[in-house]
């Protein structure tokens, strides 16, 4: 009844989400019995692999061949399917991020294994296997029974957290014999470097139409700099071209769940809230006391953002120094 985790890497390193997935898989293994296996695809540094033991990984399988040099959904699904067979796993855990969303459904259809997507907690029972998942853009949760012997789960980031269960993992080579051949070609990769990515950020500073124009983002960037935060924006802001689409948080943009989300000049339309309601704490700064953002905020300041934000930045600096 082993559990298999798909561990994606970013330039040879794992992220917090990887540790969260291993933690979550260990939680499932406690429920169903069996051990936690990890399949790492691509070249990853040795101590990164060993580090997964802290969260309960017992066997770490690495695949490093050219066939997995980039994401081809069917190739990855075929490698995972083979790893499921080899490790005797009944449950596969992936992140509910771009890669997980690409691979999990292919794997599910390939194995005829029920898919529990965007799950937010450990299964409430394992026979039947019942998971809690996000539905209606976070406006509700569903309890879903996964009625097959095998199942594939994608976990929402920051929903389970990190739980240490120290193990001494064994690191093994995995050479797939039944992998599909890549059918796509990656011509070019463009990536920004040196910036904190929205998906990884623990703190996010976000601006809306109330910021009045792209030239006013400097003050948000200063606040973000002091907090070591990423910047984001609401949909009208990216539609106007004030900020890039990659910063749009909301239902049709990025869904994020940082520890702290600071919404400045954002009214809080239901579609925007759908993208940020998973945040642990929400701070709203808005001059309209009736703005719906205050309904989901934990702390709020009703006032002029252009005055409040610079003063708040200085106040945060003070706190950080103390």
């Amino acid at each position: 009844m082993s559990v298999l985790v798909f561990a994606e890497n970013w330039d040879g390193k794992f992220k917090k989400i990887t540790h969260e997935l291993v933690s979550y898989a260990s939680g499932i293994a406690e429920l169903t019995g069996g051990v936690v296996n990890v399949l790492s695809i691509g070249k990853v540094e040795e101590d990164e692999l060993t580090g997964l033991g802290r969260f309960g990984a017992e066997k770490i399988w690495k695949v490093e061949g050219d066939e997995v040099a980039f994401l081809d959904n069917r190739v990855f699904a075929s490698v995972l399917a083979e790893a499921v067979e080899k490790t005797g796993s009944r449950t596969v855990v992936l992140a509910h991020n771009n890669t997980g969303k690409a691979v999990a459904p292919c794997l599910s259809a390939r194995l005829k294994a029920a898919l529990g997507a965007s799950v937010v907690a450990l299964p409430e029972s394992h026979n039947p296997f019942v998971v809690k998942k996000k539905v209606f853009n976070g406006n509700a949760f569903a309890r879903v029974a996964l009625n097959t012997e095998m199942r594939v789960l994608t976990l929402m980031q920051n929903s389970y957290g990190l739980h240490e269960r120290e193990k001494q993992p064994e690191i093994l080579d995995f050479v797939p014999g039944k992998a599909e051949k890549p059918a796509i070609r990656v011509e070019e990769v463009r990536k920004q470097t040196g910036k904190i990515l929205l998906a990884d950020a623990d703190i996010v500073v976000s601006g809306g139409r109330g910021m009045k124009g792209p030239e006013n983002w400097t003050m948000l960037e200063e606040l973000a700099g002091v907090l070591n935060a990423a910047t984001a924006c609401s949909r009208p802001v990216s539609d106007e071209g004030w900020r890039p689409h990659s910063e749009h948080t909301g239902q049709t943009g990025k869904i994020i769940a940082p520890s702290l989300y600071i919404a400045v000049g954002i009214s809080g339309a239901i579609q925007h809230v759908a993208g940020v309601r998973g945040s642990k704490y929400i701070v709203a700064i808005n001059k309209d006391p009736d703005a719906p953002i205050f309904e989901v905020a934990d702390y709020g300041i009703v006032g002029d953002a252009f005055k409040v934000v610079p003063e708040f930045t200085r106040a945060v600096e003070e706190v950080k120094k103390s």
Partner: peptide, 23 residues
């Protein structure tokens, strides 16, 4: 044959009211 079955739904508990501060 569907592989999953939706057993039920729940609405998340409302958040405690926002703590509003002056500028």
């Amino acid at each position: 044959n569907p592989l999953t079955e939706y057993l039920g739904f729940e609405i998340p508990a409302p958040k405690p009211p926002c703590r509003k501060l002056d500028p």
